[in-house]
């Protein structure tokens, strides 16, 4: 009577649900690392994060505000390799190494806050739209359409113009712009997922709507959001750097975009380091998250998952 063996018997006998989940996570990790470009992305991300976390150890934190560039007025426009200023200094005596290291911390702070908030807000709004549908869906999605129709840079500029230039306002402006993408992605996923028969199965059992959303709909819809969030970790730093470059952040902030902006005047005079090195950091950051995000997408793609 019984079909003797499962089609794919597990290699080792599992001891319990936790072991299964750990092993599944391990499988996904292994799958991600199989692709060399994804691995490169992951390595870059890891080193950037390490640098951000170790900032107070690598450099001596500026007082009172560590996120402000320390000014060494005695060493202006020093080239890289100068003792005490390994990567040189800017035209205002800022240490480029300090800017690079604490800029990573700024970027991390920025992207975690923005991605965190937008992902949560977007998921909630998209879930309401997709799961409830009808009029609610109409209203939310029209709002999303309107926001998507405005170029994010111009929108952020407008907000900064109204609220005044500050890094906090950049975070606010980016948050307002970026959540719509998540709302749209999750809504599309939910509309697709909620027609699966396992959702009907849960209804037949008599489980509550909230439980169905929590157990069946959301977990099966969230994958593309995770991928998008990874890509956005990079994109947001890029956009923020652009905004600070055109002067929407406070001057003197240890932020890559600000440093590029400060250093650009010196390029014609051959002082390449003050803007090129922070610019390369922005590039490296965005590239790393894009590489990793693309790899993650390939692994988590529902069409290829579970093959």
């Amino acid at each position: 009577m019984v079909e003797a063996a499962a089609r794919r018997p597990p290699a080792s006998s599992p001891s319990g649900p936790l072991a299964i989940r750990v092993r599944r996570f391990g499988e996904i990790t292994k799958e991600v690392l199989r692709n060399p470009t994804t691995t490169i992305g992951l390595v870059i991300i890891a080193s950037l994060l390490l640098m951000a976390l170790m900032a107070p150890i690598i450099t001596e934190a500026n007082t009172p505000d560590a996120y402000q560039m320390p000014r060494d007025w005695g060493a202006i426009n020093e080239p890289p390799g100068t003792p005490g200023h390994l990567l040189g200094t800017t035209s205002t005596g800022g240490d480029v190494l300090y800017g690079v290291v604490w800029g990573a911390r700024t970027s991390l702070r920025l992207s975690v806050i923005v991605v965190g908030i937008t992902m949560v807000v977007g998921t909630i709004m998209g879930s309401i739209a997709g799961f409830i549908g009808g009029k609610v869906d109409e209203i939310i999605m029209r709002l999303v359409d309107v926001l998507l129709a405005i170029p994010e840079l111009i929108f952020a500029l407008a907000i900064a113009a109204v609220l005044g230039p500050s890094f906090g306002n950049i975070i606010f402006a980016l948050t307002v712009v970026f959540w719509v993408k998540y709302a749209r992605i999750i809504r599309g996923q939910i509309i697709h997922v909620k027609h699966n028969e396992y959702v009907d199965s849960a209804r037949v059992i008599g489980d509550s709507k909230l439980n169905i959303y929590r157990k069946d709909v959301l977990p099966n819809s969230v994958t593309p959001v995770v991928v998008q969030a990874t890509l956005d970790m990079g994109n947001i730093v890029l956009v923020a750097a652009t905004l600070s470059f055109i002067g929407l952040a406070e001057a003197g902030l240890a932020e890559w975009g600000v440093l590029v902006s400060e250093g650009q005047a010196g390029i014609s005079a051959g002082r390449w380091w003050a803007s090129t090195i922070p610019g390369a950091m922005v590039f490296l950051w965005a590239l790393a998250f894009n590489l990793f995000g693309d790899g993650l997408r390939d692994v988590l793609d529902p069409r290829t998952e579970g093959r």
Binding site: M1, A4, A5
Partner: peptide, 8 residues
């Protein structure tokens, strides 16, 4: 019935 499943 035919017991079991098709082999790998």
């Amino acid at each position: 019935v035919i017991d079991g499943t098709v082999p790998e």
